[in-house]
């Protein structure tokens, strides 16, 4: 085994861990965009709130990983629904730009309101998992890597099941395809949109908890950059397309860890944004999307 191969495999492991976070957050972006055509800028901050809820559950309430994860997901789901009802719902017929500006406002509110509530200082996640490190032929796999990847895959499979086979999942697909027709077919559009926000936010919360566990520290601004990157992932896969968000998330995670592996980690974010711009210019509908044009 050459050291180059080892390094490549090592970066793949790191990239998949990072990518699973992006993928989880990207799913929420893509679901919300699919259903109300809004870039929910506050989505990364919902993830942050989830991370704090998980931190609270593990430290103050001394819970173990799974219950803490569920608590965090519940808190964020409620938050997501509240945000939608209070801030976005009144703007459903407004211009997309007005909604986008509102989303930026909500994002600010969560970030700096969060600072007021929990203080700007960093918090340390307790060691929820053993520090076990597996050395597989020179490649280092942390216990955390496994949890991260397994948790996100389980959640994605779950999401796939919900969207594909449940009543609410079918309603979500119907509303995202044609809101008015769905309404005429007797689908409760408001509840469906709320459900979308709830599910998307819960997934973001899971990503937040995983981030806290993996990187140990959290702070009120932790959601901004991963949030933007997850959006890049969603665009990459074709916004509104659920499998696209997963693939986009993993692709972005892998790209980033290879850029870091090449010793250019300060350029990591620039590469992500460059990918974003290139995708938007070359194929704005993303890897899995179809092009549509305005009817004249």
């Amino acid at each position: 085994m050459g050291s180059v191969t080892e390094q490549v495999l090592q970066q793949i492991v790191n990239g998949l861990s990072l990518g699973s976070i992006y993928a989880l957050v990207a799913l929420g972006y893509t679901m919300v965009y699919g259903i109300i055509k809004l870039i929910n800028f506050a989505h990364g901050d919902v993830m942050m709130v989830g991370a704090y809820a998980g931190w609270f559950a593990t430290t103050t309430l001394h819970m173990s990983f799974i219950p803490a994860l569920l608590i965090a997901m519940t808190v964020s789901a409620i938050l997501g629904v509240l945000i939608e009802r209070i801030a976005y719902k009144p703007l459903r017929n407004a211009t997309r730009i007005a909604s986008l500006i509102t989303a930026i406002g909500v994002s600010f509110f969560l970030e700096y309101g969060g600072m007021l509530v929990v203080s700007p200082q960093m918090r340390t996640y307790p060691p929820v998992f053993p520090d076990t490190i597996y050395n597989v032929g020179g490649i280092i796999i942390k216990y955390g890597d496994i949890v991260m990847i397994v948790t996100s895959i389980v959640l994605m499979v779950l999401l796939h099941g919900i969207v594909k086979y449940t009543k609410i999942g079918k309603a979500m697909r119907a509303v995202s395809f044609d809101t008015e027709a769905a309404l005429l077919m007797g689908i409760n559009v408001n509840n469906t949109i709320s459900a979308t926000f709830a599910i998307g936010s819960a997934l973001a919360a899971a990503a937040g908890v995983l981030m806290g566990v993996y990187f140990n520290t959290i702070n009120p601004l932790m959601g901004i950059i991963p949030g933007l990157k997850a959006f890049v992932a969603a665009v990459l896969g074709g916004i509104g397309i659920i499998p696209g968000a997963m693939v986009g998330g993993f692709f972005l995670g892998l790209t980033e860890s290879f850029v870091s592996g090449l010793g250019a980690s300060t350029w990591r974010d620039a590469v992500a944004f460059l990918i974003l711009i290139l995708v938007l210019i070359v194929k704005p509908s993303g890897l899995f999307g179809k092009n549509i044009r305005e009817k004249v």
């Binding site: 703007l91 406002g105 600010f108 700096y112």
Partner: peptide, 10 residues
């Protein structure tokens, strides 16, 4: 600023 922005948009 955030609250102002949201209220304004609505």
């Amino acid at each position: 600023t955030a609250v102002l922005l949201i209220v304004m948009m609505i």
